[in-house]
Amino acid sequence: MYSRGLLPLLLSALISLVVATPVSHLDPTLSRVFDTTDKLPLPNQGNLRAHDPNILQYNGSFYLFKGGPHVPFFKATDLSGPWTKIGTVLDGDSVIHMGNRSRPWAPTTIERDGTFYCYYTLSWSGSRTSAIGVATTTTLDGSPWTDHGAMIHTGHGPGSQVWPFTITNAIDASFITDNSTGKSYLNYGSFWHDIWQLPLSDDLLSIENPKDPDAVQLTFIPHEKIKPEEGSWMSYHDGYYYAWFSHGQCCRFNEGFPARGMEYSIRVGRSRNVRGPFVDKENQLLLDGGGTIVYASNHGKVYAPGGIGVLAGNDTTPDILYYHYLNTSIGFTDADAHLGWNVLKHSDGWPFVVDGIVSTDSGAMEYLPNCFYLTMLMFSWLYIWS
C-alpha cells in the first residue's frame, strides 16, 4: 500500500488540472501578441504533430492524413492516439510536375462505395501556380495507391486558362455531397479570390465540364488588398450546410508575428443550400467578408488554430471539430503544429466548441464533459492510493 500522506499532494495536483489558470495570472507581455482569453476551451490533445490534418472515420478506426513526404497517414482507435503510421498515399513524387511534388499539402480523404479518394495540393508558398491532384485505393493497409494526377491547375498547366482558374488558387481541397441530390462538389481556394466550389464528375476523379465549369464562389473579402481565407471545409447538420474556413496568417511566424487577432482563426457561415449563399451569425454574407469565429487563439497558449475538419456525429454522438494549432511554449514553425480537437454543440443552428472529451470504443464516440471525466479520474486515483 502507498502512504496516505501522499493523498493531499495527489489532490493538489488533480485540482491544478481541473482549475484553469486565471488570465490575470498570465505573463502580461503575452497579451501583446497572444490572445489570453479563457472564454474558449483548450484543445483536447491529439498527441500528433500535424499541419492541415484530415481525419477519416472508417470501420471502427480513425485515419489521419497530413501534409508531408508523399502524404503520410496514420491510424488510431481514439482521437487522442496513440497514432500508428500505416504508410503514405504516394509511392514517390506526384505524377504532377509542379511545386512541392514530393511533399503535397493539405490532403482530404473520403470513402465512397469501398474506394478511398485522397485530394492533395501541389504549390509553393506565395504562389498561385498550383494544382489539386487525386489518388485512390480500395484498402487502407499501406498498399499502393493509384495517382490519377491533376484535377485542376491554376497559374500554369492544362486548363489554367479557363475561368475561374484564371483568378483562383488551386489549393486546400475539401469535399461535400448534397444530401438531397447525391451530387458531390470540390471546394478549394486561398488568398487569390478566396474559396470556390466546383461540381465533380460521377467518378470523383475530375471536375464536371472542365472547359466551362459551373463554379460558385463561397467566400470573399471585397474591400481589402489581402484576402486571407483558405483551408475550406463543408459539413452538414440538421438542415444546414456549414462553410468553414481558416482566416488570417497561418505560417512564417519566425519572421515576425502579425497584429493580435490577425493570425489563423476558424470561422463559419451556413446555408440551406450546398451551393450557398452562406451567411454568418450576424447575417453577413461570406461573400462580403462575413464569418463567425468559432475557435481562435486562447489562454496565451493556443496560437493560430486552423486547417480544420469536422467529424459528423449522429443522434447519440456529437460533431467534432479538429484542427492544427501552435503551442506558444513549443514553437511556431509548421513542424511545431499539433493536432487538437473539441466537441461541437449547436445553439439556434450555430456551432460552438465546448470543453469535453470523446471516449472511443471501436470507433463509437461518447461525449463526456471534462469535469465529469476528471471527477471519475480523481475517485479512481483515490481508490488506488488508499
Rank of each mutant, 00 (worst) to 15 (best):
V358P: 09
R4A: 13
T166G: 03
V19M: 03
D78W: 01
K85E: 15
D334R: 12
G68M: 08
Y117M: 13
G290I: 11
D91C: 07
S125E: 09
N59F: 00
A296V: 01
W350Q: 04
S24Y: 12
G126L: 01
I171L: 10
V89H: 07
H148S: 10
I226M: 13
Y241I: 04
G363V: 10
S94V: 00
I384E: 07
D35T: 05
S297K: 03
G155F: 01
D348H: 07
T129A: 02
Y295N: 15
N100Y: 03
L40C: 08
V19T: 06
D194R: 11
P144I: 00
S271T: 05
V162Y: 07
F74T: 15
G231M: 11
N44E: 15
S94F: 00
G114W: 03
A335Q: 14
M1V: 10
D141T: 14
W341D: 12
R252Y: 08
L200G: 11
F73K: 10
F352W: 07
G159K: 10
Y264F: 02
G155V: 04
S16Y: 08
T316E: 14
L339C: 03
F278S: 12
K211R: 09
N342L: 01
S271M: 02
T37K: 06
T166C: 01
G60E: 06
G142Q: 11
A337Y: 11
T328W: 09
R275Q: 14
S80A: 14
T181A: 13
H223R: 15
A335P: 08
D91N: 14
K281H: 05
D141W: 08
V89Q: 05
A364R: 08
Q45H: 08
P277F: 00
Q197P: 12
S359W: 06
L321Y: 03
D334S: 13
Y373G: 03
P305E: 01
G68S: 12
R112L: 02
L326T: 12
N47Y: 05
S359G: 11
T219V: 09
S127Y: 00
L17S: 12
Y185H: 11
P277S: 06
H237K: 10
S329L: 14
L48Q: 13
Y367A: 15
P22F: 08
Y240S: 15
W196S: 06
L17H: 09
T21I: 14
F165S: 11
C250W: 05
T166V: 04
G68I: 12
M98D: 01
Y295K: 14
P199Y: 00
H70T: 04
S206T: 13
T316A: 13
H148Y: 10
W124P: 01
D93R: 14
A76E: 01
Y117S: 06
